[in-house]
Design a protein around this nucleic acid. Structure first.
Length: 482
RNA sequence: GGCGGCAUAGCCAAGUGGCAAGGCAGCGGUCUGCAAAACCGCUAUUCCCCGGUUCGAAUCCGGGUGCCGCCUCCA
């Protein structure tokens, strides 16, 4: 059984077959750079980061394109508010976007096109649409005619009649149909503009994604992704205009993820119930945030709270503690090849089995929650082995590698376990080690009162001591810090 | 009003016809000078309610109830 993906277009899980065997072309709607990114954006970026990582793990050569909308009404508005040039606003928040994504460990897309750098492509695409008779020009504006395009509403599963029934749109009287949308907007005085056959203006929102995705990925490509709120109108419109221009299917698989809610309500700017990524990163570990999101299926709504990220942090700690145990035993031990003797060990076989389960889970429409379950099963097996008296370094090394490989697909377990377990302390390592040494002497003399007072002293600083056969180790008490 | 989604233990959550994953929290045990970690055991005879289909349903069908989203910029 290979990869299956839930396709918004058909409403079903389908076997994934790329257009060119072994290659996947994927386009994801990025952000409009007019403000800091919030946690909803984080979820989106994490979901597609993992999808791309998994496709690569499967061996596909992936071309991942994610755009920046760097010219639109919101940017112009923000620029006016701040007395800045729209360009400056876009540049500033593009930089902020990269900072946030880097912190979350989200890889760069292969191509990250900006709308303002693709105006000529958009203009020629609009011309193509006009020539095909699917768009009309009114006073410097170009509108796409939804009525002329058969199949409008196919992605969002709505007919024009249904949409009209609930429409609350103020209708521009120059439009032939209320749902016709702008491909090109005439510039108002003082707004940024580009020259075009229809006069000075700027592109509509939807056309940029059509122009840029087709430029880099071809007129039909494999996967197009985004949030569920983009299904209508954005992706519906993208699909309509693209297919109107090319007479070819635009996209084979549409992937849409669910929303992030706060107290069960959608996180959004208008409700003012959003948290920015940087706010949350100041309190929690990026990998904990990833684990929190990935513990839910990407299409389900996720309710956000500090409490839940704390739980994810504890879960992540559990994984790192085991990796740390292994590392203590391994020291600098490394090995290049896995020999037959190791392959035949029960632990190794079990881990291969779990890797298979992990893969089946991910193959089933990227079921990361189930895959995480496999990761914890693997951790339990390793702990069981680590509890034994007789241990083989070669086997432990391989076991750790397996777990890390799987974790890395989800973008977690990328740190040295010691680094994770000793983060955020307000006492120096020298001080800690000095106290541990003192305590060791006290314990040898069976002066447990003193030993315990040292443990207590370190606990005050959020340090947990663990006495093992190999000596005493320490780590940060996440439970206390959270 | 139209369209769509969801409802699983104290909490989060996977599971779409065959004995209910995983995590967090809790309790008991092993280990420990004491802890911690780890491991073992316990914590949903039952998956919102009512009917139906089936040898068999959390899973399929019908009817309720509750929550959410889209239809307007939005990841």
């Amino acid at each position: 059984m290979g990869l299956r993906i839930y396709n918004t277009l058909t409403g079903k899980k389908e076997d994934f077959t790329p257009i060119v065997p072994g290659r996947v072309n994927i386009y994801v709607c990025g952000v409009t750079v007019y403000d800091y990114c919030h946690m909803g954006h984080a979820r989106s970026m994490i979901v597609f980061d993992v999808i791309v990582k998994y496709l690569r793990y499967l061996g596909y050569k992936v071309t991942y394109v994610r755009n920046f909308t760097d010219i639109d009404d919101k940017i112009i508005k923000r620029a006016k508010e701040r007395g800045k040039d729209p360009k400056e606003i876009a540049q500033y928040f593009t930089k902020a976007f990269y900072e946030d994504m880097d912190s979350l460990g989200i890889e760069r897309a292969d191509i990250e096109p900006r709308a303002t750098e693709h105006i000529p492509e958009m203009v020629s695409l609009i011309e193509r649409i006009i020539n095909k008779g699917y768009a009309y020009v009114v006073d410097g504006n170009v509108y796409f005619s939804v009525r002329r395009f058969k199949g409008y509403g196919g992605l969002s599963k709505r007919s024009l009649e249904e949409m009209m029934a609930g429409a609350r749109v103020e209708v521009d009287p120059r439009k032939e149909h209320p749902l016709d949308f702008a491909l090109w907007k005439k510039a108002k005085p003082g707004e940024p503009f580009w020259e075009s056959p229809w006069g000075k203006g700027r592109p509509g929102w939807h056309i940029e994604c059509s122009a840029m995705s087709m430029k880099y990925l071809g007129e039909t490509f494999d996967i197009h992704g985004g949030g569920q709120d983009l299904i209508f109108p954005h992706h519906e419109n993208e699909k309509a205009q693209s297919e109107a221009a090319t007479d070819k299917p635009f996209v084979n698989y549409w992937i849409h993820h669910g929303f992030l809610t706060i107290n069960q309500e959608k996180m959004s700017k208008s409700l003012k119930n959003f948290f920015t990524i940087r706010e949350i990163l100041s309190k929690f570990h990026p990998e904990a945030i990833r684990l929190f999101f990935l513990n839910h299926h990407y299409r389900s709504p996720v309710d956000f709270s500090d409490e839940k990220i704390k739980e994810a942090t504890k879960a992540l700690e559990k994984l790192y503690i085991t990796l740390d145990r292994a590392k203590q035993i391994l020291g600098e031990f490394r090995q290049e090849r896995t020999d037959e003797a190791i392959r035949s060990k029960p632990l190794y076989k079990r881990l291969v089995e779990l890797e298979g389960s992990f893969k089946s889970a991910m193959d089933d429409d990227f079921n990361t929650a189930k895959a995480i379950g496999c990761l914890f099963d693997a951790i339990k097996e390793i702990n069981l082995y680590l509890d034994k008296d007789e241990k083989e370094k070669g086997l432990i090394f391989e076991a750790v590698n397996k777990v890390k490989t799987l974790g890395n697909i989800l973008g977690i377990l990328r740190l040295e376990p010691r680094a994770f377990l000793t983060q955020g302390i307000d006492i120096s390592v020298e001080e800690i080690e000095k106290l541990i040494a003192e305590r060791a002497i006290a314990r040898k003399r069976r002066d447990f009162k003193k030993a315990d007072s040292i443990r207590e002293r370190l606990a005050q600083s959020g340090i947990i001591l663990e006495d093992t056969p190999h000596g005493t180790t320490w780590r940060v008490d996440y439970k206390r810090n959270l």
